[in-house]
């Protein structure tokens, strides 16, 4: 069973459902440890006070914030916890929206919300939320605080459970000004062959058809190195030569596909 990151309640009108939060993403990356070259012993990151040069335990670490006048304010976790305490325990549902209206640019991290505790009432209230969102095809929007950060969240049914996606706030998405090239929209005649190429490569989204080749290659590199094989470094990648003419390239692609 995966780790619980947060416990609290999901509140919908006057209905309160005790829930726990668990990640819906698995970290399958190969993680490297820092080692001391000389003796291959693992390196530990330890905290030291910059004034006294003595090691500091985690319990003695507080949060410092520098004001505009250069003065520093120190806050303990206990003091920080006095900010909007309800939000640290409760996800209040504020609105229901259509999931398709939320642009993927806002998606931060996927989670599952699970019913917390053994109470039959909790399980029923949880099931009610799954059912009602399945039947109305709406997703709930709420806010809560986890690890001293507020999140806007989208809660929706997924495979019979409640999925929660943390969202970015609108001011955390940068404006697009200056990104797009100016100029006129291309004519239909120019877009048609590009559309034809896209249609020729059109398929349904099938996540299982994509494997993480990077992870596979890195696993192989580790295995080969363990066996004492030499691993060749790749050449620096080169920028491809620009295609001579877009229209020609698209026509050629279509000719090859036929």
């Amino acid at each position: 069973m995966p780790r619980t990151l947060w416990n609290g309640s999901l509140s919908f009108g006057l209905v309160n459902v005790p829930v726990s939060l668990t990640s819906a993403a698995r970290d399958l990356d190969l993680h490297f440890r820092q080692l001391h070259k000389k003796d291959s012993a693992p390196i530990e990151q330890r905290r030291f006070c910059s004034k006294e040069d003595v090691e500091v335990d985690w319990e003695e670490v507080a949060r410092g914030y520098e004001l505009d006048n250069g003065k520093q304010v120190v806050l303990t976790d206990l003091e920080l916890a006095t900010v909007q305490p309800r939000k640290t325990r409760t996800i209040d549902i504020e609105a229901f929206v259509d999931t398709s209206e939320v642009d993927p640019i806002y998606f931060d991290h996927p989670w599952f919300l699970l019913p917390f505790g053994e109470s039959e009432g909790t399980k029923r209230a949880y099931q009610l939320l799954v059912k009602v969102m399945e039947s109305t095809e709406r997703a709930a929007l709420g806010r809560f605080v986890m690890r001293s950060k507020e999140y806007l969240v989208l809660v929706r049914p997924r495979e019979g459970l409640l999925a929660l996606t943390t969202l970015l706030f609108s001011d955390e998405v940068r404006p697009t000004g200056g990104i797009a090239p100016g100029g006129r929209k291309p004519t239909k005649k120019k877009v048609d062959p590009a559309v034809a190429v896209i249609e020729a490569l059109a398929t349904d989204w099938d996540p299982e058809s994509y494997t993480d080749c990077y992870r596979q290659r890195l696993t192989r590199v580790v295995r080969d190195k363990k066996k004492g094989k030499t691993i060749k470094a790749p050449e620096e990648p080169k920028q491809p030569k620009p295609a001579p003419d877009l229209m020609e390239a698209l026509e050629q692609t279509l000719a090859q596909m036929r």
Binding site: R47, F48, C49, S50, Y65
Partner: peptide, 24 residues
Amino acid sequence: KSVSFQEVHVSDGARIEHKRICSK
């Protein structure tokens, strides 16, 4: 856009430094 803090030593408010220490 979260408010970001520095790690400081609670007793004297001095910055915390992270050091790499060999476990052996």
